[in-house]
Design a protein around this nucleic acid. Sequence first.
DNA 1: GCTTGACTCTGACCCAGCGTCAGGCCTCAC
DNA 2: GTGAGGCCTGACGCTGGGTCAGAGTCAAGC
Lengths: 251, 251
Amino acid sequence: MGKLFQVQEFAELSGVTVRALHHYDRLSLLCPKRTEAGYRLYSLHDLERLEQIVALKFLGIPLRQVKELLDRDTRGLPDVLQSQRQALELKRHYLDQAIAAIREAERAIKPGHQPNAAALKKIIEVIEMKNEADFLLKYYSDGAQAKLAERRQQWTPELQEQTTKAWTDLFHDVEASLGEDPASEKAQALAARWKALVEAFTGADPDIGVGLGKAWADRQQWPDSLQQKTASFSNRDVWQFIEKAMNCRHT
Amino acid sequence: MGKLFQVQEFAELSGVTVRALHHYDRLSLLCPKRTEAGYRLYSLHDLERLEQIVALKFLGIPLRQVKELLDRDTRGLPDVLQSQRQALELKRHYLDQAIAAIREAERAIKPGHQPNAAALKKIIEVIEMKNEADFLLKYYSDGAQAKLAERRQQWTPELQEQTTKAWTDLFHDVEASLGEDPASEKAQALAARWKALVEAFTGADPDIGVGLGKAWADRQQWPDSLQQKTASFSNRDVWQFIEKAMNCRHT
DNA sequence: GCTTGACTCTGACCCAGCGTCAGGCCTCAC
DNA sequence: GTGAGGCCTGACGCTGGGTCAGAGTCAAGC
């Protein structure tokens, strides 16, 4: 039989507060033996379990779920880990956005010295962007959303800027070439650039492609702010021209 | 006079729930006009304020503080933004650690198919590392801690591995050269490598250097796990040799 | 045997930011 | 006047404990 510890001693040993140990006891998460007088007596075996509890808690897993995992053996662990990782990655994404928003705001404050308007506006802009992104996610299937979440990890403001410029340039080039034959070499080159840009976003993933198509088709239902931002890409002639060019290619 | 909205309408307009509006009202954060019967009536001016509230809330600023900021004009905003950014960066660091821990655990699960032991152990290891890092932070001044937090942003597992290897190699080389004259060219070269590695960590910052010195000097008080990990660097002869070599250089 | 001081126990309220009833007005259309 | 639908306030719930408060336990010293 190993050594037994009273709460305080055990708390110091494990780096957890006495109150937390009480809490875990009440949740039936870690229930030590008791003396006749009701004093808790923790063993080294309890320490092992406590370390597992702390580990899972560190991952942000709620204590109820920790209890289930540890009690009914750890069969569900892989699934829980995966979904928890996704949840954490999402959280991290929001954190990054918040940090980026603060950086923008701080930049806006320094030169003009109008903390009021400038900084708050910057923050609000970033949040609107986030809302728009969430809104557009609706159009994607669950699977596509997961893939987008992964791809978002390596998405940077610089990339965003490059992409926007690439589309803007391409759009202007197409507008300037509307008179061309869609089967001409020039038109085909434009169609190829178009396809490349689409695939840069979809990653050649069909699920994402479908979602993107649905989103664009339904753009009349978008909130005003989004419609305004994409207004410069709404020229129907351009879309028809590209469609024809794409079809020429296939036939 | 602008248009006035009842709660539900205003909630849909602003994307906030009715309950949240009630909550903000009770906190005196956003108090709309009322009809005689007590119905809330929101104006477009209220919408503006609400957007600011949502923005600051998005940054993780507690509502009480949001109220202070918005009520007594935004003079304190820059400071609040800065400290909030630091807090968020710290949170992100923990999040990254948790995500990394899950990745490790997932890797440990797949091959061996022993979810129980392997995965949980991996997680516990990562947490121990975190605890050790926190423990060591004690030795640094507030300023040095802030700088370390910044430097930690660009710290990667690969860098960690390289650094560990560099120190291990250097230590072995010094041990093999203990017979040399500390003033010799060879010893001086070793001292230079040593200095370079120290500065790679401190970034040539004196505050960080001081903290590092204090931490190492007090290593007998470190927790066991840390002492074990650094046991291979505790050879006194090596340290004395390097000290002598460093002194030769100065005189 | 009694006191004292150091621990321990349980129960209860507290934090943030709302979600979610419950019970009771208000308003408008029919 | 009455039913539907919106509005009000008040109160409890959730998470993971922090922080008392009042009371029991235990070993040591007198």
